[in-house]
């Protein structure tokens, strides 16, 4: 039994760490404390709300978030804007709808059920407006990058002058955390760029953290539910395992005498 436990935990640890090392990139990313990590990790609501503000005011002019709807902003486990706030946010966007009875497309104020309005009609239009580079959709961006939140957080703060001798084309910038160090997105954040309504100082670091938190939620909207359910499930499994273990001992004790 002891041997078995040892073996099992050994296998588990081996598996876990080997994949963690495989998954992790070699670059040292900037670190910050993420509230959503760990067994009980939850999102910081105000950080999510601020992150949404940064997204709308800064990122959304180029980056779409096509899998999110305005209703998500009011849902549990997210930024948790009130229903009225979310409705007001939705209504502040012009949504294309139709065709109406005359067969024409028309615009109307957004509703909760609408998806986030996209900055460009399609990928080609986005490329044309951005020198051939497509600003990736940000709905699942955090999960689509090896370094995850740490990578995005670092990238936003990773703009530097290129090292001497490095030639950069027009519209290409140097970023020490970007793969290959060349990025087509210019540095977007500067201190005081947005006005946080809750009085938080809008430093580059703060904005990077807020918007990254927002992107994490966007990519994994059920993260809080998952953590809570996971804890319950594992506690339950441990209890049942203990019960089954003692039942097993009882049952096997019937034949021990014969051995």
């Amino acid at each position: 039994m002891k041997k078995f436990l040892k073996l099992f935990s050994f296998l588990f640890v081996l598996l876990f760490f080997s994949f963690q090392t495989l998954a992790a990139e070699k670059v040292e990313y900037l670190k910050t404390d993420w509230s959503f990590k760990g067994l009980f990790g939850k999102f910081d609501r105000s950080s999510l709300q601020r992150g949404y503000q940064v997204y709308t005011e800064v990122c959304s002019s180029c980056h779409s978030m096509k899998y999110l709807s305005y209703r998500n902003l009011a849902e549990k486990g997210g930024p948790e804007f009130s229903e009225a706030q979310a409705k007001a946010i939705a209504a502040s966007f012009e949504v294309k709808d139709g065709p109406n009875e005359d067969g024409d497309m028309f615009t109307r104020p957004g509703k909760l059920s609408d998806k986030f309005v996209m900055p460009y009609e399609n990928v080609k239009a986005a490329q044309a407006a951005n020198g051939g580079a497509y600003p990736p959709d940000m709905s699942v961006l955090v999960k689509a990058r090896g370094g995850g939140v740490d990578y995005i957080y670092s990238l936003l703060q990773g703009y530097e002058d290129p090292p001497i001798g490095m030639e950069l084309d027009d519209g290409v910038y140097y970023n020490k955390f970007m793969y290959g160090n060349k990025i087509k997105m210019a540095n977007q954040l500067s201190d005081g760029l947005v006005n946080y309504s809750d009085g938080t100082e809008a430093t580059v670091e703060q904005m990077s953290k807020d918007v990254t938190t927002f992107l994490m939620w966007a990519a994994e909207p059920h993260l809080e539910a998952r953590h809570q359910m996971g804890f319950k499930a594992i506690v339950y499994l441990i209890i049942l395992t203990i019960l089954v273990y003692f039942s097993m001992k009882k049952i096997w004790s019937r034949i021990k005498t014969e051995v």
């Binding site: 339950y236 089954v244 009882k250």
Partner: peptide, 30 residues
Amino acid sequence: FLFTATYAVGAVGVGATIWPMIDQMNPDAS
């Protein structure tokens, strides 16, 4: 008692596992 408790706890788990499989067919959030 031990066996009854094991069965009972096991049954709760089976029930809790089946529910998501049923609820997924209800109207989704969208």
